[in-house]
Amino acid sequence: MSRTVLVTGASGGIGRAVAGAFAAAGDRVAVHYSANHAGAEATLAGLAGDGHLLVQGDLADPGHAERVVDIVVRTAGGLDVLVNNAAVGSSAAEAHPLPSVSYAEWQRAWQAAVRVNLLGAANLSYLAARHMIEGGRVGRIVNIGSRGAYRGEPDNPAYGATKAALHALGQSLAISLAPHNIAVSSVAPGFVATDRQAQTLGGERGDGIRGQSPFGRVAEPAEVAAAVLYLASAEATWASGAVLDLNGASYLR
């Protein structure tokens, strides 16, 4: 049965791959974006099937988060799966290592990461889950976390910390929402070959990053998307509460 799936931050990278995987499986996809309209349009144009939609919103704003869910529910007639992928603060351009940034830069990095990576996901999860509960829908929430929640992110500590919080949020919600037939899980990718990481992977650090995995490479977005598609499936109900490591054995815990 076709479902309606909201993928946040779907204008490129992992989000685009996730949107494509759900569309290929026959689901209707709401492609969310914040500012990259052209990228979101490209994602939409590449989706198999029809009935997909674009929805814009700055998830740092609770009102925008509410509007995003409302648009999806009204346009598609419901919401079955939420993928919390939108995030900021992971790129080299957004680096904020404590020893070398100003206090003002430190504040900006943390405030941006908390507002989008944690509070944005928390607000969307609340709104989506309440809709699922009120409609008696069998729901799924899948969070895109990070290996950095465990391994550490010395150059982007706000990113690592908010991803750790996102994992914890998912586990709390998994317990809270199970009686309502809503399963919640997370994936924790390592480096992924996205546009956001192109500068880092193509620079002098690139070979070292690829060498962190015994496979000698980083993940492709499609590999993350495949895991998300599984966790959102009926067969993965018993994985609710799990955080699935997707790092090519580059970090083991």
Rank of each mutant, 00 (worst) to 15 (best):
G49I: 10
Q171P: 00
R74H: 13
L59H: 03
G46W: 07
A193W: 06
D50I: 13
A164M: 03
L59F: 05
P179R: 12
N36Q: 13
A165S: 12
G135V: 01
L124N: 05
N181Y: 09
D27H: 15
G206P: 08
A158T: 06
G39W: 06
A95W: 09
A109L: 12
Q107T: 13
A225E: 08
A161Y: 00
I71W: 02
E220A: 12
A76P: 02
D70V: 05
D155H: 14
R147H: 06
G203H: 05
V69N: 10
G190F: 01
P189E: 07
S2K: 14
D50Y: 10
L47E: 01
G152C: 07
Q212Y: 05
S11G: 09
Q171A: 08
I175P: 00
A242C: 12
A219E: 09
G57L: 05
A76Q: 12
Q56P: 01
K163T: 08
F191P: 11
Q171G: 01
A174D: 02
G77S: 09
W238T: 11
N156T: 13
L252D: 10
I71S: 11
G170H: 01
Y150L: 13
H37V: 15
G190Y: 00
L201P: 02
P97N: 10
S11N: 11
A25W: 03
W238Y: 15
F22P: 00
D207E: 15
A236Y: 11
I209P: 00
L47Q: 06
A222W: 01
R151V: 15
T75K: 11
G206T: 09
V184W: 03
Y159Q: 04
P97C: 10
A222M: 03
